[in-house]
C-alpha cells in the first residue's frame, strides 16, 4: 500500500495532503499534553515498535507469511491521538529515509495508512466495546474486529481516491473489488494478530492499553478461554458478513457473460461514457457497468469512512478533555511500573 510518486494525480495528492495534515494536526493538538510530558521518547519507541512489527512475519497459510500494518493496534494501545501521530511518523520516515512510498504521495499514503486506520479503527473499537462484554475477551474481540475493519476501510479509501485521481484506465469497480477483496483476507490476519497482541498486553500491563482507560480493571481480568480456531472462525464470519454487505451493492449486476465481458474489458472498448465532465478522473469511471450504481457504492463508502474517521477524531478530542480525571487512574500504577523497570 506504500504508493509511489505520481500514482494518483496531482490534485488528489494535494487534496489528500490537506486532509492528512488537518487530521494529524488534530492528533498532535490532542497529544500535545502527553507529548510535552513523558511521552515523547515513549511515542518514539512505540513508533519503533510499530515499524518493527511491520517487518515481523507471521504465518498465514501453508507456510506463507504476512505482516502487521499496525494502524488500529497503535490507536488501541496508545490512544487515537498519539496512535495516529505515531503511525504517520512511521509512514513519513519510510518515504523520506527508506524510499518506501513516494514523498509526493505522502498525502494519500498518510491518509490511507495512518489517518483512516488509526481514527477509523479506534472508532470501530469503541463502538464494539459498547456491544461486547467489557471484559478481556470483549476487548480482544473488539480490537481484532476493529483492526480487520480498519484494513478494509483503508483499501476502500484508496479506491475512492482512485475515483478522483486515476492515472490509467482501470475502472473504479475493478479497483474497489480487487482492493477490498484482497484486504478482506489481509484484514483477517491483521485482526487475529492485533486482537492477540492487545490480549497479551492486557494480561501483562492492562494500564498500558490506552483504548480501555475507562474500563473497570477488575472486569478486565475476566477472560474466557477461547481456542484459536474459534477466534479465527469469528474473524472469518465477520469478513463474510462484510463481503455480503459489499456485494449487496453489486447485486443488480448484469448477467454472467456480460459481466465477464465487462471484466475483461471487451465491452469497454467502444464505450462512450456520460461522465466526461464529472469531477472524477476519466479513467476511474471509464467503462463502468452502471455509473449511478458505482457512484452510489463510492458515495456510501465515502460516507462510512468519513463517519468512522470523524468518530475517531471526536473520540480523540474527548479523551483529551477527560484526561485530567483519567490520568489520576493511570498514576495508580506508578510504583508497580518502577518495580518492573
Amino acid at each position: 500500500m506504500h504508493a509511489p510518486d505520481g500514482f494518483l494525480n496531482a490534485g488528489t495528492a494535494v487534496a489528500t495532503g490537506a486532509i492528512s495534515a488537518g487530521a494529524i494536526g488534530v492528533g498532535l493538538r490532542q497529544a500535545r499534553e502527553q507529548l510535552a510530558d513523558r511521552q515523547v521518547p515513549l511515542a518514539g519507541i512505540s513508533a519503533a515498535f510499530i515499524f518493527a512489527a511491520q517487518m515481523f512475519n507471521f504465518p498465514v497459510a501453508a507456510g506463507t507469511t504476512g505482516h502487521l500494518l499496525g494502524g488500529a493496534l497503535a490507536a488501541i494501545l496508545l490512544g487515537p491521538a498519539v496512535g495516529s501521530v505515531v503511525v504517520a511518523v512511521v509512514v513519513i520516515v519510510q518515504a523520506l529515509l527508506f524510499a518506501d512510498g513516494g514523498v509526493s504521495a505522502l498525502g494519500y499514503n498518510v491518509l490511507n495508512m495512518a489517518v483512516v486506520t488509526a481514527f477509523g479503527g479506534y472508532a470501530v473499537f469503541r463502538g464494539l466495546l459498547r456491544l461486547l462484554p467489557r471484559t478481556a475477551t470483549g476487548v480482544v474481540f473488539a480490537s481484532g474486529i476493529a483492526a480487520g475493519v480498519s484494513v478494509v476501510l483503508s483499501a476502500t479509501a484508496f479506491s475512492l481516491e482512485w475515483l478522483f485521481g486515476a492515472t490509467f484506465p482501470v475502472p473504479f469497480d475493478t479497483v474497489f473489488g480487487a482492493m477490498v477483496g484482497v484486504h478482506l483476507l489481509i484484514g483477517i490476519g491483521e485482526g487475529v494478530l492485533t486482537g492477540l497482541t492487545v490480549g497479551a498486553v492486557l494480561a501483562a500491563r492492562p494500564d498500558l492499553v490506552a483504548g480501555v482507560h475507562d474500563l473497570d480493571r477488575v472486569a478486565l481480568r475476566d477472560r474466557a478461554s477461547i481456542g484459536m480456531r474459534g477466534f479465527l472462525l469469528a474473524g472469518a464470519l465477520v469478513a463474510l458478513l462484510l463481503a455480503t454487505v459489499v456485494s449487496q451493492f453489486a447485486a443488480p449486476a448484469p448477467d454472467g457473460l456480460e459481466r465477464v465481458a465487462e471484466d475483461t474489458g471487451i465491452a469497454e472498448v467502444a464505450r462512450d461514457h456520460a461522465l466526461a465532465d464529472a469531477p472524477f478522473a476519466d479513467y476511474a469511471t471509464h467503462g463502468l457497468r452502471n455509473e449511478s450504481l458505482s457512484l452510489a457504492v463510492a458515495g456510501t463508502a465515502g460516507v462510512v469512512i468519513t463517519l468512522a474517521v470523524g468518530a475517531g477524531l471526536v473520540a480523540a478530542v474527548r479523551r483529551g478533555r477527560g484526561r485530567g480525571r483519567a490520568s489520576e487512574g493511570e498514576h495508580e500504577h506508578g510504583p508497580a511500573r518502577a518495580g518492573v523497570g
Partner: peptide, 8 residues
C-alpha cells in the same frame, strides 16, 4: 518522535 523511532 521520528528521531527516537529511528534510534530505537
Amino acid at each position: 518522535i521520528a528521531t527516537f523511532m529511528l534510534r530505537y
